[in-house]
Design a protein around this nucleic acid. Sequence first.
DNA 1: ATCTAACAAGTGG
DNA 2: CCACTTGTTAGAT
Length: 158
Amino acid sequence: MTAHFQTLEIESSWGNIRVEFLEGKPVRCSLPFLSSQPEQPFSIASKGRDATSVFILNMLAGRAAKVPEIGPVNGTEFQKKIWRAIAGIPAGQTRTYGELAEAIGSPGAVRAVGSACGRNPLPLFIPCHRVVAANGGPGGFSAGLPWKDYLLRLERKH
DNA sequence: ATCTAACAAGTGG
DNA sequence: CCACTTGTTAGAT
């Protein structure tokens, strides 16, 4: 069976953001890996007006954005639970890996939470960047810490 | 402040 | 099934 999926590519000053859709819903989002924060300020060249483009644009501009409905993500029940819990974190707030582990009923499974976060198929849509280490450290980010730092900086600022 | 051990779950052999 | 890796953490040195 050929599941026809669309691909949306958004050009930004930090590289191309690619979103894959399955049946009209985003199922995968890939950000360019950044080992260090680019000199250039972040900007988006895309003019897309679809819900996804607008969402990403608002998100990366520091504006509150309504998260579009996401498609069926590929993952274990555990990971889905974690991603769902992460999706419930309000903008501007952060949670530690430990708190998140406890929230899903598995206190102590902090490393599993970290792993699940790292495998988050939809960064931006699932705000895994709001999950930080208990000691105040930045933790990590699949696409590179600059993204996380940038996003947290946008939301933390009030 | 740096280093080690333990923990839970995923992935690969 | 066993071992290694992972966006951690708490405790000891």
